[in-house]
Amino acid sequence: MLSTGHYLILSSLSRNGPESRSELASRLGMSKAAISSLVRDLLKQEILCEQAPVHGSGRPSVPLAVRAEAAWFIGISLQNDPAIVVLTDLHGTVHDRMELPRHADLETCVTSLCDAIAHLRKGLRSARGHVSGVGMALPGFVANDRQTCLACAALGWRDVDIGGLLSKRTGLPTWIENDANALILGEQLFGALRGSPDFSVIFISNGIGCANIVNGRLLRGYAGGAGEMSHAPIVTDMAHALPCRCGNRGCLETVASLLAIGNAARRAGLPTDIAELARLAAGAHPEALSILHHAGASMGLATAHLIQLIDPSHVVVMLDPNLRDGIYGHALQRETESHILRRPASRGMIHFRDFEPDSFACGAASLAARYFIFGPDGV
């Protein structure tokens, strides 16, 4: 059983990387004797490990780090079909994965996921240890208790206690979260920006998702819908505004998403495959250039709005590399920079990242990992 002091040490090492006992005592405002006692417990439980001594002018300093194999987690993504289930360690590294059909029928879905979890647990027990928890990412609204799916249009779910059902069937604590929120929480825990208290993540796929970390915490909003930039209006001329699946017209998703780009290409008689369309644009095909430039510029304008409202230090944009390296990415960057107020290092705010199939599942696994590292509050 871990105490508040143990969690403080795990939190510090997770956020700041390896530190010595003296550095931990200074950062946490605790005595060296108290730190040494707590560290001794964590070393005995094989949650921490000592790294190679660092030699300086005085006594060698021994950095402490969280052991990757100290705990294991299951991450589930229902963001798309097929569903993806991964097994990760405490550093967020994927060690095993499965793909399975994404079932809208609740009983079929739960049974299928339980079978996948059992399979991954069986393989882990024979080799390394046991699973500590499960996280799930899905496209929809999630209650603040991170147990109940309030609404998921893709699956036709409403007020479904999917977290409770999985926990009861598997015997493992389970947390669920909106897909974009899971993505940014994974980035905060395991990503390159884990030390940043204020940053945003945008993903561009068939839909568009966004989430924000403000003062070190996920910005959820009153009803859990903060960051829903996909359905923010970007086309104000209703004569040219396309209908959106949300019921409105002119939403960002109808202009800048992969689905929107494919639909525009189809209407123009061009290939709907993004790589082929990007190659045409690179060859100066006028209609391909127009479609991708319009989509990227619209995404850039929406990103500028986000920056003006939230003021993040960085914005991570996850997208297809064919978009990132072509006219779409250039238009996005240019439009963003031309519509924000000048601020220190504003030109370095946008960080493009390849959109990886396992990103949502890894973010989901981080939901469970947070409770192991930060304690019952999972902050």
Rank of each mutant, 00 (worst) to 15 (best):
S3I: 04
S3H: 11
G5P: 04
G5L: 07
S11E: 10
G17I: 01
S22D: 14
R27P: 02
A34M: 14
V39Y: 06
V39S: 05
K44V: 15
V54S: 14
H55E: 15
H55A: 15
P63S: 10
E69T: 15
E69R: 05
S77V: 00
N80Y: 14
L87V: 07
H91I: 11
D105F: 15
D115Q: 12
L120I: 12
L124N: 04
R125H: 15
S126F: 15
H130I: 09
D145F: 03
Q147L: 12
Q147M: 13
T148N: 12
C149D: 04
L150G: 09
D161M: 06
I162S: 09
I162R: 04
I162M: 10
G163H: 00
L165V: 06
R169T: 08
G171K: 11
N178E: 00
A180C: 12
A180M: 03
N181M: 09
I184T: 05
G191D: 04
R194F: 01
F203K: 02
S205G: 15
N215P: 11
G216Y: 07
G224T: 03
A226R: 03
M229C: 12
A232Q: 10
M238Y: 11
M238T: 13
C244K: 09
E253D: 08
A264L: 03
A268V: 02
A275P: 12
E276K: 09
A281N: 02
A282F: 06
P286N: 06
E287C: 05
E287F: 01
A297M: 11
L301K: 06
L301P: 01
A302D: 04
H305N: 13
I310P: 04
D311H: 09
V315I: 07
V315R: 05
M318W: 00
P321E: 02
D325L: 11
D325V: 03
H330K: 14
A331V: 01
L332F: 13
L332E: 08
R334L: 10
I340C: 00
R342K: 12
S346V: 10
F355P: 00
F355E: 12
E356I: 12
S359A: 14
L367A: 03
A368D: 04
A369R: 00
F374T: 06
